[in-house]
Design a protein around this nucleic acid. Sequence first.
DNA 1: TCAAGCATTTATAACGTTATAACTGTTGTC
DNA 2: GACAACAGTTATAACGTTATAAATGCTTGA
Lengths: 332, 332
Amino acid sequence: MPSTYQKPTQKDVAEASGFAVTTVSRALADDPLIAEKTREKIAKAAADLGYVPDRAAQRLRTGRTNVIALVLDPHGEILDFSGSMISGLAEVVRGTKYHITLTQHQSGEDPMDPIRHIVRNRLADGLVFARTEPDDPRVQFLIDAGFPFVTHGRTSLASHAWYDYDNEAFARMAVERLYGKGRRRLMIIPPSARYTFSKHMITGFKTAVARHRIAGDLPEDFDLNTPSNAIYTKLRKRLEQDNRPDGLICPGEIAAISSLAAIDDLGLRLGEDIDVVAKQTSPVFDLHRPRIDTIHEDIEAAGQFLARALLQEINGAAPATLQNLQQPRPGY
Amino acid sequence: MPSTYQKPTQKDVAEASGFAVTTVSRALADDPLIAEKTREKIAKAAADLGYVPDRAAQRLRTGRTNVIALVLDPHGEILDFSGSMISGLAEVVRGTKYHITLTQHQSGEDPMDPIRHIVRNRLADGLVFARTEPDDPRVQFLIDAGFPFVTHGRTSLASHAWYDYDNEAFARMAVERLYGKGRRRLMIIPPSARYTFSKHMITGFKTAVARHRIAGDLPEDFDLNTPSNAIYTKLRKRLEQDNRPDGLICPGEIAAISSLAAIDDLGLRLGEDIDVVAKQTSPVFDLHRPRIDTIHEDIEAAGQFLARALLQEINGAAPATLQNLQQPRPGY
DNA sequence: TCAAGCATTTATAACGTTATAACTGTTGTC
DNA sequence: GACAACAGTTATAACGTTATAAATGCTTGA
């Protein structure tokens, strides 16, 4: 490619096809006013020249950015959450006119900042983010602004587009598994309580242990955002106390690995002194030894749904119709 | 925010400050021709109005996109590679005028496609990608096109900006560890041989085992892109053969987990029948039990370096000065 | 005092696209 | 045969910015 290469514009297509620039623009936009023959001629000329519309010009003129913005939380909560989510989003967005841009807010920062910035400066046509809180200010802000968005996770606010994993069912299912193995003193390592998904998980845990009238330990001070060695330390201390749990529910692989380390280091035997059920998001954990009893969550599927939903919402679909709750899938 | 909200433009700043639009433009660009007093007045007016330049207009006029494009390989090679890389990139890019866009090519597709597309259509000012091959066509294309880019991984091509992990040193170090433990029949699970980093790793492995005059098994048919259960299957078969290795080197956590599963399922004892050294990219693996002997690679640091390097290259720095080789850091 | 020089500022045009309104030529109606 | 209606095409202007060239006013030197 010579450095003098100049991208063909509509003007070039117009000259090549013998029509006016306006006609080219309409034809390429499939305007029904344009005669079919004309449309074909122009399409051919455009293809021959390798014409691709200039995004900046389109964006300037129409105000539409053809961008969807992914706002990521600080790194490190779920192993490979971002990678899987991105993979799902990218797959759906590929082949459309949309691009994905990335923003990641620092741990200290206000999560509202990137959202506000993107909306105020029209940096995208729609937003994706995860880890919602019941009364999430980001969601409220976007609803008020009338800005298209989708979330991974529900809220208690007015209806919007979301995808979520049924963490209540996950916790219930996990309790059933442990109960079925004869476990009667269960404990869950809850994600940070401020997230909606954590509340659902806790609800599921509480109702399931209540139904069986067994002990359900729900420590307050655990936090998925906690570095894993903090989970290790806290759990280890708990396991050394009297009346330690004999069944443990982990909301993710990091918690599972941390827990197994604490169990192992205390000389407890998995499957004898204690059983563990964990949420699994990565296939490689099938190969973990000792085997971890898991329940699957598919983050990539979430990304796919969210991308599709957002594109639909941008094109006018009602957010209330764009909701999906993924059911837990048994690990094995 | 009312839906009638209109972003302030330079025109608004011009009216508010009493200067012409052109002057505003120059002042905000810190043009030295503008008087200091004027610059201050305009800066104040812009700040008061909350003026933010319109990216589309700037891009259309200047041809600069203020975008750096991250081209990701198909998902799933290294656990959380994308997430860590993105985190590093995003941290450096935050606060600059640049945005990050994402492209991920499908496993079947030509890796050149997204690169060509981005360059031909001026979709970014610079490119980041990983997993280079010695004679990487993407690198050659970009050098020929004079398009700024940085890679995670070296090539044998003309000098360009890169960041790499010293996989030769990694392999040597891993061999030394195993040798120190009395292991004399070593084996490495090599990443797909077409990547530069794999060749380096193999070189390091070969030279180190040759120095000690010990056996070095280098199976041809392993592949990091292989689903982990394929690694498991192949390794398991190998461990069942005569003269099985007593020291194993894993290029990543997925390979390590798969290997440990094969070892465990065959009833071999880690630390007795065989020792494993693995590359570690995620802190949580410190908590893996049994403990895995690891050597660290910091992907986030790679992302940070690459972002800084790319921004410098876009601003005219010579690519040859933007190279860094990360040294392996012992796990414990 | 006046031209030249200088420091600032500004008018104009252009980037590539699309929305709006205007134009052309044909058909159909009375 | 005049005119309305319509299908199809096009000229014009505008989105918000910056590069270029031009203009303004002030200072300086002879």
